[in-house]
Amino acid sequence: MKEIKVLGTGCANCKATVKLVEEIAKAKGVEITLEKVEDIQKIMAYNIMSTPAVVIDGQIVHAGGIPAKGKVEGWF
């Protein structure tokens, strides 16, 4: 069970990232919990400067823009 958080203020890129992560996790049969973090203060607590960002089990694995498909596949 991987705990995934997508950090972003709710722009189109953030939504696309959430969708991409969901799709690929499903395709790979990996069980995840997905949480969208939209509160700016909580986002800033991760000390990132560009969104959307992806956090897996507390580790920042991506920041800035929609991640490439290959990159997401590598997470699972």
Binding site: G8, A12, C14, M44
Partner: peptide, 15 residues
């Protein structure tokens, strides 16, 4: 620098 308007706030605070 690559920039998207949705990143304005994180960037601002980061600076």
């Amino acid at each position: 620098t690559p920039f998207c308007s949705c990143s304005a706030v994180p960037l601002f605070i980061g600076f």
